[in-house]
Nucleic acid binder design. Sequence first.
DNA 1: AAGTATACCAACCGCGAGCGC
DNA 2: GGCGCTCGCGGTTGGTATACT
Length: 202
Amino acid sequence: MIPLSRRSTRKEVNRGSWTAEEDQKLAQVIEIHGPKRWKFVATKAGLNRCGKSCRLRWMNYLRPNIKRGNISDQEEDLILRLHRLLGNRWSLIAGRLPGRTDNEIKNYWNSHLSKKIKQRERQNRAVSKAEQESSDTKNIQIMEMNALTIGREDASKCEQSFKSGFNGDEFFDCSSDEGPLNLEWMNKFLEMDESWFTLHDI
DNA sequence: AAGTATACCAACCGCGAGCGC
DNA sequence: GGCGCTCGCGGTTGGTATACT
């Protein structure tokens, strides 16, 4: 049964799913006249379909050498690599995969691969966020330690600057009204014993 | 078993390019 | 150059199948 939404809404042409009979008629005409002049083919086949619809049916379903069924791992890998290279150029990608149609690859991408990629991106983001947070925590701990052991004022300035997006040029700007920061604490910091890091699990 | 959500995929639509007149 | 036609492409729709609750 032809689905409601794909039944003819305009009286001129059939729409919706193709029947076996229609497929057969179309294939017969194409065998004689070739897969071109689709409007002519549609008329010649006695199909109440537009040329466009006939072309699509032939290209995606009736054409010989069409490979149907599951996309292999190798094909999937190739699609991924080609998509990275070409973007949504489905016909070009399909051209590199014998027997596969652009529509099939597009569908496969939209239903499988795009999700896989999104999932992978989410994982990558989570990993880099965790790494960033861990690195931030370590840096803040170092600064807190400095505040306790050396110049509290300078270290707190450093921490503040770090939290609001560290900018080296700004932080070490000697032209400011305040004059150059007292970097003595940093020298002391650089001289610190490695054991402190172990002690603080950094 | 029934209802709902999600996945899959065939087909449609709109647009732009190419071609002949 | 302008127009109409055909073709091909990519995005979208919506029916069906399957999974889940």
